[in-house]
Design a protein around this nucleic acid. Sequence first.
DNA 1: ACCTGAACACCGTTCAAGT
DNA 2: ACCTGAACACCGTTCAAGT
Lengths: 200, 200
Amino acid sequence: MSPDRIVDTARRMVESAGIEALSMRKLAAELGVAPTAIYWHVGSREELLHAVLDRMLQELAPIEPAGTTSADRVASVAHAIRSQVRDTPTVHQLAMHLGRTADASFPGQVVLAREVSHAGLSGDEAADFVRAILFLIGGFQLLEGTFRQRPEGARTTQELWRGVDDPAVDPALRAALSEATGADGVFDYALDRLLRSVLG
Amino acid sequence: MSPDRIVDTARRMVESAGIEALSMRKLAAELGVAPTAIYWHVGSREELLHAVLDRMLQELAPIEPAGTTSADRVASVAHAIRSQVRDTPTVHQLAMHLGRTADASFPGQVVLAREVSHAGLSGDEAADFVRAILFLIGGFQLLEGTFRQRPEGARTTQELWRGVDDPAVDPALRAALSEATGADGVFDYALDRLLRSVLG
DNA sequence: ACCTGAACACCGTTCAAGT
DNA sequence: ACCTGAACACCGTTCAAGT
């Protein structure tokens, strides 16, 4: 019954069934202990969740730039951050829940800033560029729904588009928006436009 | 004790204190009725939240394009959507909670698609463009934290940057990222780059 | 130092019983 | 048709009491 064992078990529960699935009573049952025993080791449920997030953040693999040209390296970092966000939804779900998105996104942000600096950008212009890339990643995260799954009844954007009959909307556009899309393509497209426009 | 009165009261509670603050028992107290009476009119708490969202979506002001050139009109729609997202955080909070972000973003999406069509784009190219703009808006929403407020202890990205001493990061960039920024500037910057790159 | 048990103040929801 | 009350199965948390 160390804090370590409690945090580990809590983490497993959160990762397998979501944040809401972690109750102190279920956790206690899993640990074979009275619910109130947990409070002696870790504080409240909230503090426990913070401890779980801390551990997850520590284990997050560092982002490694790849490529030779500045543009390639910046793009590789952007892609690496995005992949990591996609592959570790629980971390960002939890960070969001606890209001600690800054902590979760910061390590990648620093690596990105390094490559942007190396590309020769500086000051406000560089900051806008870094933030714009983070916006794209955040948009991907939000609209891909990586951290909140749709319930059975909910309609997708594609389904909604199939029901549209608007003469002002290009039919081919309507058709394209009616098809599911890997967000990857859109992300590549937008990032590419941004990179070209800034780094030439 | 009509469904209308229940939904209205529930909506007031959600808007003033957040989704979590809506409990069937508190709502019943507010209505001066037994908690169980609510279940006869609206179904469960979840169904009630859906009804609240439906009403909010109905009342959302339609997005109106402005400007004469195609680029201006597209930009105005993007800005209008973003402003609406910022000014109606509860709607998007609730939509996210219920897995209905598609319903919330769709009306603006259609207007955007119209203007992009009018600008002469078509098919997959137009779809990528529309989705990229929505990515930017989503990123703004997520990183601006418009729908999840930071608790007292949490650090901001700016605070984290002030603690960085990395020779590979341009000092002026570090300084810029250490200052709070209206996300407006970044959004304008990224949107402008994207528009220029696509519409010329 | 560490754990238990009882207790408090909450939840959502069902369902028989009332009018 | 509409509402109440009792009841069930949950919560997080505190705190005195035990070892």
